[in-house]
Every structure is written in C-alpha cells, then in structure tokens.
Amino acid sequence: MTRPPPKLEWRGVSKRFGAEPVLNRLNLTVPAGCSLVIIGGSGQGKSVMIKLALGLIRPDAGKLLLDGKALPGLGGRLQRRLYGKAGVLFQGAALFDSLSVWENVAFRLINADGVPRKTARRRALAALERVKLDPDIAERFPSELSGGMQKRVGLARAIAADPEILFFDEPTTGLDPITAAVINDLIVDQVKRLGCTTLSITHDLASARRIGDEIAMLHEGQIVWRGPAADLDRTDHPQVRAFVDMQSA
C-alpha cells in the first residue's frame, strides 16, 4: 500500500532577498492532520515560508507541493485550489478596515463562493460564536475592536469556510499573556473541531507548546531540529537549547 503524500511539502526551496539568502534548500513536510509549529528567531525566514506556501511570493528554487502536486504560485489554478482549502490568520489579523466584522468573516463566502449575503451573515455569526465573540459586535468595524478581539475575528474568518489547512502567522504577537492563552485555546479547539492540518509560525514558546503536535526549528534558512512538542525541553540540540533557554531567562 502506498503512503498518502504529505498535505504540504517544501522540497529544496530557496529564497533570497537581494544578496541575503533567507531559505536555503529547505525541505519540510506537513502530514495531513498534523499541527506543526515552526519556531525560530526574528529574520530567520518563518513568515517567508508561509508566504511561499500561500503563493504570495515565488521561490528562487525548489518546489511547493499540496497533496503531492506542485503549486505553481501567484494565481495558478492549483494555487486557487489551495486558497479554497486554506484559512490564514495573519500576524496583524489583516482585517479589511472598510468592512464590518461580519462582512470580514463572510468575505470569502460572499465574494468567492457566491453564498447569498443573508446565509453568509448567518454563517459569519456562527463563526464569531465559535471564537467566543458576542454577535453584537458583528456590525462594528475592525478599528473599534481591541487587538485580541481583532485576532479572534481573524480566526473566525479563517475557519468560516471550514478549511482543510490552517496557517497561523505569529498568532499571539502583541497580545498580553492572558489574551494570548485565550487565542491559543481557541486555535486548539477549532483545529480539533475541523480536524485539519495546521502550520503555525511563532517565537512564543508557550504558544508553540500549546498548539503544536510537532515543533520544528528554522535556523539560517533550514530546519535544524524537529520533534514532538514534549521533546522541546528535553533536546540537547544547541540552537534549540539556546532559543528555549533565552526565552526562559
């Protein structure tokens, strides 16, 4: 029996900006149903990894594969298929300023899936409820919400169309520890409910331990360590140890 291909795969991917190499022949697989968290210091290329997977930028070399098929990037048919299956929570939530909260959550349903506004609104309110937001905020605009609430709306938008893959770009950055813990719990609940594959990037170890089945460390453009979340504190890998000890100090 042949093994199913990984849900997502970076195969020999390189990317540089100017003379600066960011990813250097990166190889990484995310099996279906796995919650993988990428950790690493600032400027190590974590966000670039997600942007490449989402086709927002092109790799200089190598391939990205979805269910074993190469993603062409930047608007190809397969890339659009990925978008149809994916939900993304951006670092700053990236909510649309000119739209109300419910219109943000229902954006894909209305504009890409052709769902009637009334139905889309009902589904948006259900998604807001799932991230423990009061439906009363549905008519408000993003600028009227706190940072934590914006993240929750971003999460509601990411899960509204029941995606198969979820990407989290620094989901707890800029939040106080209590709000960050709430966001982490919501992410875990929703990933469990959807049974989907997730890729998260963070430098917040508390968040990584809470939401990851597996953790991988990105250093100088390559994955230098990967293991179960529980092994993070046991490994003697020098880069991982330095990163963990620095955060604990």
Binding site: K51, L54, G55, L56, G75, R80, Y83, G84, A86, V88, F90, Q91, G92, A94, L95, F96, D97, S98, F107, R108, N111, A112, D113, R157
Partner: peptide, 25 residues
Amino acid sequence: AEIGAMRATEQIDAMRTLSTDPFRY
C-alpha cells in the same frame, strides 16, 4: 492611500488567500 495601507497591513495578501483577486476587487 487606501490601497497602499491595505498593502502595508497585509490586507491585500489576506484577500488573495480568501480566493478573491485583489486586482479585480
């Protein structure tokens, strides 16, 4: 200013990942 601010705050990237072509929208 509107579109530039959307670019700076990743709203245009978000729109693309929501299966909507930002150019057309």
